[in-house]
């Protein structure tokens, strides 16, 4: 494939061909099987890159803390009778607690100012709402948007995706099989990556060996999402680890064990070790109970 064809394919994949160029491109595609094969090859690569990027963007959005909508409760509770029953139970519990509090002599006098009242709304009937597909979409969107205008403007991000805390990275002692790296999240790892800032260079000088691919495995990128009073959860996908939970009180450590073919991660938090597998779903952290493995992890952690 010559460089003109290479540029043609690239422009096609980036949607940069004008109608005339596109016509010429399609003609070439039909006439030249070898060219068509190259186009398919490049198309597959771009599709793969697109999937990687989409997953990355979605993982980013997933990590944003968004308050649940009112409909979630209704949708998940199912029937109105169930809603009513649960509502009744909630009221009964509140009344019960109040009676108990008043009967207990040892309890300090009831302080009215500390009472938190909760308004409970009981839907009278579960309504099913259907689309009016014939409505003009823009008109619908405008109407719906007005309903949400009271929704406050989100703050500009800083609190949405919380940056990881401090940066500590230490190379541990090497064993014959493993290169063990212990690190605590690092926000600007990429910016510091060697070779990012290079002297001026021109495109044609490509005779040098291709050293762009990393020979060393990049340390895992960790991001914590603050969730108080919740079970510790995580998601580890595409080299990025998201930790959900209350990680503000105590530091945590990630033990990263890089074997020849695979990378294994463990989390050390509140004197416990947790297993971390690759998953694009948010999962609960699984505590390691195997004493032998815990002992080995202790040795690795203490010798870092």
């Amino acid at each position: 494939m010559n460089s003109t064809q290479q540029h043609q394919i690239e422009a096609f994949l980036r949607g940069e061909l004008n109608p005339e160029q596109l016509k010429e491109f399609n003609q070439l595609l039909a006439d030249d099987p070898s060219f068509a094969q190259n186009v398919r090859f490049e198309q597959n690569i771009v599709n793969g890159l697109s999937q990687v990027r989409k997953a990355e963007l979605k993982a980013r959005l997933d990590a944003i803390d968004v308050a649940p909508t009112g409909w979630i409760g209704l949708g998940q509770l199912g029937s109105s009778s169930l809603v009513k029953t649960l509502g009744g139970l909630a009221v009964a519990s509140v009344v019960g607690v109040l009676i108990y509090t008043n009967l207990d002599d040892a309890t300090p006098e009831f302080d009215q100012s500390k009472v938190i009242t909760t308004e409970v709304n009981y839907p009278t009937e579960q309504q099913s709402i259907e689309f009016d597909w014939d409505l003009k979409e823009s008109a619908v969107a405008e109407t719906v948007e007005k309903q949400y205008q009271e929704q406050s403007e989100p703050e500009m991000i800083a609190d949405a995706v919380k940056p990881a805390a401090e940066v500590v990275e230490e190379k541990s002692t090497k064993t014959e099989e493993f290169d063990v790296t212990v690190n605590v999240p690092q926000p600007d790892a990429l910016a510091k990556e060697e070779g990012l800032v290079t002297p001026e260079s021109d495109l044609p000088e490509m005779e040098t060996t291709d050293e762009v691919a990393n020979t060393e495995v990049a340390p895992v990128d960790v991001e914590t999402v603050q969730k108080k009073n919740e079970t510790l959860k995580y998601k580890y996908f595409d080299g990025k680890l998201f930790l959900y939970g209350d990680f503000n009180e105590q530091p945590y450590e990630i033990l990263e064990i890089n074997g020849v073919k695979e990378r294994k991660l463990y989390l050390f938090f509140e004197s416990k070790y947790f297993n971390i597998d690759v998953t694009d779903k948010v999962k609960e952290l699984d505590q390691i109970v195997n004493p032998k493995l815990v002992n080995e992890l202790d040795i690795i952690r203490n010798n870092k």
């Binding site: 980013r60 959005l61 944003i64 968004v66 909508t69 719906v144 948007e145 309903q147 949400y148 929704q151 403007e153 989100p154 500009m156 991000i157 949405a160 995706v161």
Partner: peptide, 10 residues
């Protein structure tokens, strides 16, 4: 991120 939060409910 900003857009996601802003129109999430809608």
């Amino acid at each position: 991120d900003y857009l996601y939060k802003k129109y999430y409910k809608m």
